[in-house]
Amino acid sequence: MIAADVAYLRPDTAEEAVDAWRRHAGARYLAGGTEIATAARRTAAFDLRACIDVKRIPEANVHEICGGCLRLGAALTLSDVAEGDAFPLLNAVLRGIADRTVRNRLTLGGNLAGLLPYREAALPLLLADATVLTVAPGADDRPPVRQERPLRAIFDKRLVLAPGELVLSFCVPLEAPEWPWSHYRRTRTGEVDYPLVTVAMVHDGAGVRFAVSGAHPYPFRSDAVDALLSKDGAAALPAVLEALGPLRADARASLEYRVALLKNMIRAGLEDLA
């Protein structure tokens, strides 16, 4: 139960959604609601005065191949996406997130835009150089603004969005799902747990692309690491670790353990791609 009195709004279009956000201070977009419902129940510090339910906006539910890309609506549940066969790496990564009944609600957009740091669904999308379609409130009384931008351009540890900006869909170039891929994920307890380290890699024909989450408290991909692994393979591991910067150490896993996991996963991933 959420103790605070909240308003509930269910827009039919993206423009209605951003208009509702502008009219309601303290509003949050609600899709799967898995994070909002639990965070708002746990603490009054989670400011929630209105929920704007974006699940029924048609553009946020697209799941189609169109115009040379695979377009995935941000309001699709992880289960819906993972049951498709269009992007095997994405499916493999999504099946590791939470458990099935949570994945029946948790959405693709929610995983990337949520508060939890891992945001593993971002890994395949970053590797694929996906783009993201958003709609944001216009300045002053101007109409809402739609933009399609490279995900990497607006992803710095998390999605960097303007106030009130709503993610509608992601667009994956059709060649990306065809690339050889590798995915490794290790948790502290059972399979349903946050990742200590999760690594996704592809070979795009020209070189290796590498993305990781858990090792840092955010997903990470960099051209420098891709270049090192493409040029020198496993021999580049010391340089890769240096390029990754300080890794996470906490009660769930020591720094040394995470480094060991990371090295093993990268070696295994390179073998998978060879």
């Binding site: 799967g32 609601g33 009944t101 949570v102 609600r105």
Partner: peptide, 13 residues
């Protein structure tokens, strides 16, 4: 028909 956790969704949804 899909199993979901009812503590994580609002009745109005």
């Amino acid at each position: 028909g899909k199993p979901v956790k009812s503590c994580m969704l609002l009745a109005v949804e």
